[in-house]
Every structure is written in C-alpha cells, then in structure tokens.
Write a protein that binds this DNA or RNA. Structure first.
Length: 122
RNA sequence: CUACAAUCCCGAACUAUCGUGGCAAGUAAUUGCCAAGGAAAGUCUGGACAGCAUAGAGUAACCUACCGGUGAAUAGCCGGCGUCUCGCAAGAGGCAGAGAAAGUGCCACAGAAAAUUACUACCUCGCAAGAGGAAAAGGUGAAAACGUGAGGUAAGAGCUCACGGAUAAGUUGAGUAAUCAAUUUAUAGGGUAAACCUUGGGUGCUGUAAUGCCACGUAAAGGAACGCUUGAGAGCUACUCGCUCGAGUUCCAGGGUAGGCAGCAAGACUUCAGCAGUAAUGUUGAAGCUAGAUAAAUGAUAGUUUAGAAACAGAAUCCGGCUUACGAGGUUUGUAGUUAC
RNA sequence: CGGGAAGUAGCGCAGGCCGGUAGCGCACUUGGUUUGGGACCAAGGGGUCGCAGGUUCGAAUCCUGUCUUCCCGA
C-alpha cells in the first residue's frame, strides 16, 4: 500500500482517480493483479455512504475485469491498482462503469507502451 | 374531512444471470447452508468477562437521596404516596422528592429596613431640640416577621381568647411502607443547598488494541544523571502516615518488529402457546440455531407482486436500559379549522 | 475503544469560577480633515449568547439533556 501511494502514477477521469504501479512479474505465487477501492472519510462522513461508493467502484471494476486481466497475463506484469472517489455527489452505476472502462483502456495503452520501449532498449 | 402534536405497529417479498464474507462436505473441480438495525448511531448509564491490586488508619474525591415491587444490575421499568402546573370538573403531565431550627455566604434596582428593621405616621415625657415605647396603618419590592374578629392598652403587639392555616414532636387508628385521618403539646425561625456545606447510603483501578500462547527480529552495544544498606527507586492505584520490596532506575540519540492462533459467537438467546401477577416481570412446555470481518463482507442488471418501496441509517467483545434521527400506510388520543345535521 | 475542548455582532476573541449593566479589536454607516484617496479624529448602528427544558424574583453565567465542530491517546 505504502509503495503504491508513494511511487504510483495517477490517471483521473473525474470523479474517479486511478493510482497504479507496473512491475515485472516476480515469479511468486502472489497474484498478478492487486486491486483496491477507497472512499475518503473526509468527504463521506457516514459509513453508509462510504460503503455505497466502494460497492459501486467494485462492481464497476468487476464488469470490466476479464479483458484487462487477460492483457496483464499476456504481458507478464504485476500490476497494482487503486480506485479513489473524489467527489461528494455519487453517480449511478452505469456512469461509474463507463468511467472505469475509459481509465482501464488508458492504462492498457500505457502497459503496451512500456513493453514496446523495453523491447527497443534491449 | 383537513392540518399539527404525541403514541404504538411495520421497516417489502419473489424469480433469473453475474459477484462478495463465513461455515460444512470433498484430494480437487465444485456443491450446499447462513449473512446487519430499530435504532447497528450517540457513548449517557448498569452489568458480564479479563488483567492488576487486595496488613491497616485517616483525609480527600465522586455517585446517590419519598415508599414498595421487579430484575444479574442501574440514574432503568412497574405500582403507590406527596407536591407543582393546566383544567369548571373528570382527568392529564412534570418533579435533582433528605436538611435553611448546625454554621458561613448572597439577595441587583427600588425601599427606612433584605433579617433581631424603623422613614412617614402613632403614644408618653419635653416650650423646643430630643429621649423612650411600639410594630397596627402607608408606600417600595419577587420577597417585609401567620390570617380574620374580639378583648386589652398611653399607643400598640399571639400580649390574651375564638376560629382557621403552617412547622416540629408525641399518642391512637388505617396501611407492608412512604403516608393519611383524629388528637395533645410546643413554636413563630423570609428566600436560596441545580451557593459553600451538613446528614444517611454507596464506590479498588484499568479496559477485548483487555488478556493468554506461538513465530520472527535487533544493540545484552553507545552517551548523560542519580544510586548500591549513609537507600536511587518501586508497590499498597488521589494524598498523608505506616508497612513491604529493593540494586538498579530515569532520560537522550539510535536499532528491531508491526505476523498468526485463542479471546470470538448457544446466549440474563429467539419465536409461539399456557399459567401467576393491577403491572413491570416471572415461570412451564414446544420448536429453532440466527453475522463474525481485520482496510473490514450483502451489490449490479432485468422482470413480477403491491396503493407505495421512497426515510434515518452499516455489526467490530457481548447483553439490559436511556437519548437522539426517521418515509409511506395504519392504530389510539389531543388541539385547531371547515362542512352538514 | 477511550479521553478532552469549543459554540457570544460580518470575522477573531473577552465576560462565565463569584447570577442582576453584554464588551474589545478589525470590518460597516455618518461627519470632519485632504485638491482627491489612504491613514487619523469624532459620533453611531448591529448580537437576546448553538438548541430545548429546569432551578431562581431574575440565567450568556448554575444544572440536565441534545445538536454541531475540533483536538488528543492506543
């Protein structure tokens, strides 16, 4: 967690903010994908609202998961991703899903780019 | 009928697809079962449970305050007594409901005076100034030394008497008791104890990140101060005395770890029915097993039912109570308005 | 899970222990000063003390409950 937040890069599609790190797969039995979701207690004071936002983010990721997971597997990377919700107004499930889809597409582009540059240097 | 306030009930169900946490079975794939609330909230309280302490004395601090019952316990609940407010009444609601006759303090402004009072007025003496008596009348104030009438007196006064009211103590009767009724005696002291305080009763301290066990790792090194029987420091948990232990203690800079298991889910348990009790509640029988995570689990989509599905809101050791928040519909009660008879 | 503090004028704070008159600074309004503005001088307006209930003759102050905000320990 600490490594992710201090060294990770961020992409924002308001109000969803995605923080990520990409590393070579270390050949450990740990998973290749580590995912978390968060809603700050400073914006959402009530526990019910925090849970609601986290569930929506989780659901949105779940629906977009299969394609993204396949890509990471092919490229043989270890990716850590954290979704943060930064606005007070809660959007509907469909809007959040669309935003997450866009974010993951951007991230996929970055993963491909890293792979290419690595191939060039080697 | 409408609006508002209070009161109690309820806090959606089902199907399909995908997904989350736990438990059980299985080598595994997988399958089956269970999965937030009436307040889970606030943390205002009472306990359970756990650890530490448990020679003693004194002081302080805190809590509590009509009676009986209930219950593990309580500042809860039920019933009663007293008292206050509202009301014509019936009745409804509130009460921190011991002591002001142990002591100290305070009572703005007004008023002569705010507690052993005397301005005007009254009476006696005196030409007057003044001295003495008395506390009825006036006015001020939230509050001015029991109220009415008669006697009495220089004028007056519970000074005396009659009736009535208040407080305290005693006796008799009713009641488990608080208390009530009757009666006798005494008293005349204004309020404030949610001012200090006094009296009766009670209270060890800390909290599940408690606590126990397992695993892993470092620095058992360095610097400073005090001390080693001429006693540093520690314990008896706020303090003092006293008692006991006692050779290390405290600080600085720096280093290491931040994992797991138990605690932790069958209980003052839930539902239904009977019985006892005015009630709170108790008891008997039957049936049931009903969350257990550790960044922290219940969601998404589509459809059906329904008059409607919208509010407040998410367990973290567990129970009892209190308080606060809350949609729609319904129950009961009150207030206001309108319409009809 | 446990402990504590605050709420008073548009803003920042006193007053609270020991009850009776709510005040200070900045800001605001008016007037003066200046050619004009700022600064300065003088005068003035504005709050019923977070909310509800109680004690008292009387409550910002005392007591109880409640709401909101903030801080601390592990």
């Amino acid at each position: 967690m600490q490594f992710l937040f201090s060294n990770g890069h961020a992409i924002t599609n308001f109000p969803v903010r995605l923080i990520y790190t990409i590393q070579e797969h270390p050949d450990t039995p740990e998973g290749i994908l580590n995912v978390g979701v968060g809603a700050p207690s400073r914006t959402f004071r009530k526990a019910v609202a925090r849970n609601r936002v986290k569930r929506l983010l989780r659901e949105g990721y779940r629906l977009e998961k299969p394609a993204f997971e396949k890509l990471v597997q092919i490229k043989n990377k270890q990716v850590a991703v954290f979704f943060l919700y930064t606005d007070l107004n809660v959007l509907t499930q469909k809007e959040i899903q669309a935003k997450i889809q866009l974010l993951l597409a951007k991230l996929a582009v970055k993963i491909n780019a890293i792979n290419l540059s690595n191939e060039v240097t080697t």
